Computed example of a mutant assay.
Amino acid sequence: MRRFPLERRLKEHIIGQEGAINTVASAIRRKENGWYDEEHPLVFLFLGSSGIGKTELAKQVARYMHKDVKKGFIRMDMSEFQEKHEVAKFIGSPPGYVGHEEGGQLTKQLKQCPNAVVLFDEVDKAHPDVLTIMLQLFDEGRLTDGKGKTIECKDAIFIMTSNVASDDIAHHALQLRQEAQEQSRRRLAENLDDVQQSEKITISKQFKEEVIRPILKAHFRRDEFLGRINEIVYFLPFCHSELIQLVSKELSYWAKKAKQRHNITLLWERPVLELLARGYNIHYGARSIKHEVERRVVNQLAAAYEQELLPKGCTLRLTVDGETEEEKEGGAAPSLRLELVGEDSKSRKLDIRPPLNPEEVAFAH
Rank of each mutant, 00 (worst) to 15 (best):
P94V: 09
P94Y: 00
P94G: 08
P94S: 09
P95A: 06
P95L: 06
G96V: 08
G96Q: 08
G96I: 06
G96P: 09
Y97M: 10
Y97C: 08
Y97N: 02
Y97I: 03
Y97H: 03
V98F: 07
V98I: 14
V98A: 05
G99D: 11
G99A: 09
G99C: 10
H100K: 05
H100Y: 15
H100S: 13
E101L: 05
E101F: 15
G103E: 08
G103D: 06
G103W: 03
G103V: 04
G104E: 07
G104R: 02
G104F: 01
G104I: 01
G104C: 07
Q105H: 15
L106C: 00
L106G: 05
L106H: 04
T107I: 06
T107N: 00
T107K: 00
T107S: 14
K108T: 14
K108I: 05
Q109A: 15
Q109G: 05
Q109F: 14
L110W: 03
K111Y: 10
K111V: 09
Q112M: 15
Q112E: 15
Q112L: 14
C113G: 06
C113N: 10
C113V: 04
C113I: 09
P114M: 11
P114T: 04
P114S: 11
P114V: 04
N115I: 07
N115W: 06
N115P: 04
N115C: 13
N115M: 05
N115Y: 11
A116P: 08
A116T: 08
A116S: 09
A116M: 00
V117K: 06
V117I: 14
V118S: 03
V118Q: 10
V118F: 07
L119S: 09
L119F: 03
L119D: 00
F120S: 00
F120W: 05
F120Q: 02
D121V: 06
D121I: 02
E122R: 10
E122Q: 01
V123Y: 09
D124N: 11
D124P: 07
D124T: 13
D124E: 14
K125E: 05
K125L: 04
K125M: 12
A126T: 00
A126C: 13
A126R: 01
A126Y: 02
A126H: 03
H127C: 12
H127T: 05
P128K: 03
D129F: 12
D129S: 06
D129M: 04
D129Q: 15
D129Y: 13
D129E: 07
V130K: 01
V130T: 03
V130Q: 03
L131G: 02
L131Q: 00
L131T: 01
T132Q: 14
T132V: 15
T132C: 11
I133L: 14
M134T: 11
M134N: 01
M134W: 08
M134I: 04
M134Y: 12
L135R: 02
L135D: 07
L135Y: 07
L135N: 04
Q136R: 11
Q136Y: 09
